[in-house]
Design a protein around this nucleic acid. Structure first.
Lengths: 236, 236
DNA sequence: ATAACAGAATTGGTCGGACCAGATGCTTTG
DNA sequence: CAAAGCATCTGGTCCGACCAATTCTGTTAT
């Protein structure tokens, strides 16, 4: 667990992005507010204009900021006009501590998307699909005790993405990918709450349903698991 | 409200991005291929390294390219690791001509997400919600004949996004936003196929269902509309 | 007094070249 | 033959200058 990790150099660009993200998400600025010009901030940070510009571009990609060319940079109404990257930014900032509203929303979505994937997969599954999923599950079980928390969460994410890929509806997989950061935060929480062996057993139950082509069964298991998770959150 | 993003002058950066996007999506490069270094391309395009770097960053955000710091830039396996931005990039490049697979996938997703929003909204709707939606519908009807095709599509997109916003599940709205470009392409097609007045009448029917708190009715109308659209596509 | 207009100031967007540090690969060395 | 050392390659950051569109401001004409 010797996480020497990087962190040796924090660039001005990164510093600027972090500061603005924090200020915007904390509500220091309101949607519609005009932010300081690139030149002002460049002077304040003691850097060139390019650094600030590049940072603003990144913030715009996260949906936190609205750049009006030759006019100014404004705080976006990110809850209305934001995208999934915005959500990822929020998650990154708040670590694994998500508000219950956000968690509920995410899980509703997962149920909608992954539920559809389960149903489709049950209709079109091949023996090879089953074999692959079982092998995948075994791998997870094997590394369960040696892997780091986030690493394990990544595997669970990949397992469920595999469902979307093999369902034949590749768009669903693209959607799963966009929720990557959020999903990792969720799985870390989930694994802490239920324990690893419970979670792995769940995966095997899913495969059983898919093998039996029981789409409704798989869906119900997913729905039940999610509502139980939310109920536990209530009690905390 | 970003409607028209005309580029009066095509910058080198934009030129570079377009060229690479075209080459990657056309299959000239294969996933995993190493792309030319920033310096090489800078020389080829007769520009500085910053331009290429910034362009590569954009391509990475679109999920088309995988940047390995201090090592190289590689073509991403965008169909597996891409996100919705990738899809938007594809749509932008291919104009409004979408493959049937993509359209089907998108509509499945819309049904999953928006269907959930309709059901939720029917449970929690206020009189103010109804009034607002009716007013919105009227506005669309009024401008129907004077607005450009894309402009009108934008309004239909915003109307349906409003459903997600007012459903109370703000995450759903964020998801809708990420599919903006794709959705516009869809609506342009839809309006050509069914005509404007039919489409506007649909909106009013939805409001009627919401007012009656008939979530299943709204869902069925949406599902039936989508499957009819897909059936018509078959026949072309 | 007000409206229209010209030009100045301000804004984001682009650009090229310089420097940095990590990754790579070839050469030398034990 | 393998390991250490070093030259060279890579992307990442940064600066300062220039460009063009927008916005502000002060003047002029009605």
């Amino acid at each position: 667990m010797n996480s020497v990790k990087k962190a040796p150099v924090v660039t001005n660009k990164e510093l600027f992005i972090r500061k603005m993200t924090r200020e915007i998400l904390s509500g220091k600025w309101n949607p519609g507010d005009r932010l300081p010009s690139e030149r002002e901030l460049a002077a304040e940070f003691g850097t060139g204009k390019t650094v600030i510009h590049s940072g603003y571009e990144k913030l715009a990609a996260m949906g936190l900021v609205d750049i009006k060319p030759k006019s100014g940079v404004f705080v976006a109404d990110y809850m209305k006009t934001g995208n999934i990257e915005t959500l990822n930014a929020i998650v990154r900032l708040s670590g694994n501590e998500l508000s219950r509203d956000v968690v509920t929303g995410i899980l509703d979505l997962r149920l909608a998307i992954e539920g559809m994937a389960f149903r489709e997969l049950c209709l079109c599954r091949s023996d090879e699909d089953i074999a692959h999923l079982r092998a995948f599950t075994s791998v997870i079980r094997d590394i369960a005790n040696s892997a780091r928390e986030e690493e394990l969460a990544e595997y669970f994410f990949l397992w469920h993405r595999e469902i979307c890929i093999r369902s034949g509806k590749s768009i669903l997989a693209l959607f799963m990918n966009t929720t990557h950061d959020v999903s990792i935060a969720f799985w870390v929480n989930y694994l802490r709450m239920y324990g690893i062996s419970f979670a792995v057993n769940r995966l095997e139950q899913f495969v059983d349903y898919i093998e039996a082509r029981d789409g409704e069964g798989a869906y119900s298991l997913l729905a039940e698991g999610i509502s139980d998770y939310l109920a536990r959150l209530e009690n905390i």
